Simulated scan of single mutants.
Amino acid sequence: MSSRLPVPELPDLGAYLREQRQSAQLSLRQLADRTGISNPYLSQIERGLKKPSAEILQSLAKGLQISAEQLYVHAGFLDADTQPVTPDVRVAINADSRLTPKQRKVLLDVYASLVGDND
């Protein structure tokens, strides 16, 4: 019998996605509509039953208006050390509980217009 030490767990992608979705005040269905990813599959990702591909993570990042790199780190595709040092403004806006959904949208739209990201 081989006694191996447990491998340290990667950050919980499902919990992180759920937190980001809730911060953006989106239901699973709304996120599914934004991303083209099925509601059941999104639910399985959030519950840790499925590990999404990089392409799925890219779609989720776009739908949540967050950094794809952050999702790659949480999924174990990138090391946290390879993260860019610059903060993700979209994440900060979505995470600020003092803002209303309308205020978040306005700020995200203004930011997108300033950085030339009109997706």
Rank of each mutant, 00 (worst) to 15 (best):
Y111M: 09
V89N: 01
V89M: 06
A54L: 07
R29W: 08
G76Y: 09
L78T: 07
D12G: 05
K62S: 11
A80Y: 00
P87Y: 08
A24E: 05
D33T: 12
G14I: 01
F77A: 09
L49D: 00
D109T: 14
L57N: 01
D33S: 14
L10F: 13
L64I: 12
G116D: 06
Y16M: 10
L28G: 02
Y41P: 01
S38L: 05
G63A: 11
A92N: 07
R47T: 13
D79Y: 10
E19A: 15
A15S: 13
A15I: 08
R29P: 02
A80L: 06
L17H: 02
L28N: 04
T100Q: 10
R29D: 05
K51R: 11
N118T: 10
V85R: 11
P8W: 00
L78C: 15
L71P: 03
P11S: 08
S97T: 07
V89E: 01
R18C: 04
D33W: 12
Q44M: 07
Q65K: 15
V115L: 12
Q70D: 13
L60M: 12
L42K: 03
S97N: 03
D117V: 14
R4L: 13
Q44V: 03
P8I: 00
S53A: 06
H74K: 14
S3R: 12
S97P: 02
E69K: 11
S113L: 15
A54R: 07
T35H: 01
S3N: 14
V115G: 09
I45C: 02
E69C: 13
S23R: 09
L26E: 02
G48K: 08
N94F: 08
A92M: 12
S67T: 01
Q20P: 02
L13Q: 05
I45E: 00
Q65A: 15
E19V: 11
A75T: 05
L78W: 15
Q25V: 14
L10I: 09
P6R: 06
Q44C: 01
S38K: 03
D117C: 09
L26V: 05
T35Q: 00
S38V: 00
R18N: 02
L99P: 04
D88N: 10
R98Y: 11
S23L: 11
P84R: 09
V91K: 13
I45D: 00
L99Y: 14
G14R: 01
F77Y: 15
Y41A: 04
Q103S: 15
L60F: 09
L108P: 03
G36E: 03
D79T: 13
T100S: 15
D117S: 11
L13I: 07
L60T: 04
V7F: 15
D109Q: 15
R21Q: 01
R104N: 04
I56N: 01
S38M: 04
F77D: 04
Q20M: 10
L57R: 03
L49Q: 07
A15N: 08
L60Q: 02
I66M: 08
D81P: 00
R18S: 02
I56D: 01
T100G: 10
A61T: 03
K51F: 11
E46F: 15
N118C: 07
D79H: 11
S59E: 05
L49H: 06
P52N: 05
A95S: 15
